[in-house]
Design a protein around this nucleic acid. Structure first.
Ligand SMILES: NC(=O)c1ccc[n+]([C@@H]2O[C@H](COP(=O)([O-])OP(=O)(O)OC[C@H]3O[C@@H](n4cnc5c(N)ncnc54)[C@H](O)[C@@H]3O)[C@@H](O)[C@H]2O)c1
Ligand SMILES: NC(=O)c1ccc[n+]([C@@H]2O[C@H](COP(=O)([O-])OP(=O)(O)OC[C@H]3O[C@@H](n4cnc5c(N)ncnc54)[C@H](O)[C@@H]3O)[C@@H](O)[C@H]2O)c1
Lengths: 210, 210
DNA sequence: AATAACACGTGAAAAAGATAACAGTGCTAC
DNA sequence: GTAGCACTGTTATCTTTTTCACGTGTTATT
């Protein structure tokens, strides 16, 4: 049972390793990955333990094998669909960002209540009307959703998503969602992050870990 | 010296308190704030300790006073300007989001290298050419910046920002920036967050704290 | 008036997380 | 061939963060 931070770092390692692989790097040591990730070598080794992959003291970690191992650990057995609710400024930016990126995690359907957006295809993703939310999610077995609607609407949307079987929500609206304990919610609060940056920019303090 | 998490929660409390104030709530108890923030009452009380504000066991916390106290603790003495580099999909969404929001922390200048964006005013914010970066930042005493350029460009931008006197960076590009220890960097990694959600959605695990 | 109830602030205990330490291993170089 | 080296996996230690628990003061109630 690895910690939440550890899971986050594994995802970070993967993105670093993917870039290294594109650059022709075939193997590396824990201290090299640590340096790229802003972590310590021990931390890297400890994180990688949970994936079951074991490197060689001589050659270090094989980038390809390690990527595969992280993938087996982090990803669903088969590729997973994600729904996004709220095709506004932020929602569209995220849709643009994720198109043709990670094959194992793709935004499969978008939803909005604005009739000007409904039934359009935006960044390759079909925008459905809100009344189709439950049916589309159930039909496509969507278990992960992104909320980018205004804060006031977010709780209602979360309730509907949960009723439709969603088990994980990435929430950009600045409210804490109330959901069943079996549903995982991760909040991305940009205002909070910016205020934190402003605070520490004044304290002359070092950046925090990952 | 409060923890990083604690600073984040103070910002969250503030946003909750602001909303409560608009709804006509004048005072509350630690357990009420805790419940809204997804924290425990002890944690709330402990976090608030650092601001120096002390509530009454009878009436709880006065929302207005508490807001003022958090503000004194978190905010700069006078309102602070923020720069944003990379007026793309995400950059524009963030610019739209922050216009007319927090008076103490406003995006004052944007920068992009695309000539179609330069010298336009977007969401009320002037987009400057990259060659003016240093001069504008120094002139306007900007100490906090947001990076929303492609990953490959982010390190260069960070270097220039630091040279121009920036002390805190909110970084949306999926790379770890190398900066002097005196500069604070906060990363927002959407891919990582989404992968985390996907992972825990499969584990039937409870959401993490804040 | 005495007492129960309640929430605050805060020191102490517990839990979580990060770092350091160390034994084991295979290569290199004498 | 074997001493030295550089790395791994993993356990042990240390640090940070969260939770508990209790003394205090105030109001309501008997
Ligand atoms: N834009 C940003 O950079 C940014 C940053 C941080 C947080 N956020 C948060 O993300 C959310 C969206 O921000 P935005 O800037 O994209 O806002 P926006 O107004 O541009 O977009 C909101 C979208 O949600 C749709 N919507 C509203 N209510 C709905 C409902 N009940 N059902 C379905 N769709 C609905 C609207 O039609 C619109 O398309 C907000 O909660 C905001 O606070 C945005
Ligand atoms: N869009 C999202 O939802 C999203 C989510 C997470 C992370 N990100 C990250 O945010 C960054 C921006 O994403 P985006 O979707 O807005 O990309 P984008 O391509 O839409 O925007 C990038 C902008 O940066 C400008 N730019 C590029 N190089 C520059 C330079 N050297 N100097 C100044 N300006 C420069 C471009 O002209 C463009 O306007 C990327 O690093 C991306 O990985 C985006």
């Amino acid at each position: 049972m690895p910690s939440h931070k550890s899971i986050g770092r594994l995802s970070l390692y993967r993105s670093i390793l993917n870039r290294l692989l594109r650059d022709g790097v075939n193997s590396l040591f824990s201290h090299e990955l640590a340096s790229l990730a802003g972590a310590t070598p021990s931390q890297v080794r400890r994180d990688l333990m949970v994936t079951g992959y074991t490197g060689s003291p001589v050659r270090g970690y094989d980038v390809r094998d390690l990527l595969a191992s992280i993938g087996r650990f982090l990803d669903a057995p088969e590729s997973e669909g994600v729904a996004l609710v709220g095709v506004g400024n932020l929602g569209r930016a995220i849709m643009a960002f994720f198109t043709g990126r990670r094959p194992s995690l793709t935004i499969q359907a978008a939803f909005d209540r604005d009739p000007y957006k409904v039934n359009r295809v935006i960044h390759g993703i079909r925008c459905h009307p809100m009344e189709d939310l439950e049916s589309v999610l159930v039909r496509e077995h969507v278990r992960v959703a992104i909320i980018t609607v205004p804060a006031i609407e977010a709780q209602d949307i979360a309730d509907r998503l949960c009723r439709a079987g969603v088990k994980g929500i990435l929430n950009f609206a600045p409210v804490r969602l109330r959901v069943l304990p079996s549903v995982f919610v991760e909040d991305v609060d940009v205002t909070m992050s910016l205020e934190k940056v402003a605070y520490y920019s004044r304290q002359g303090n070092r950046a925090e870990g990952i």
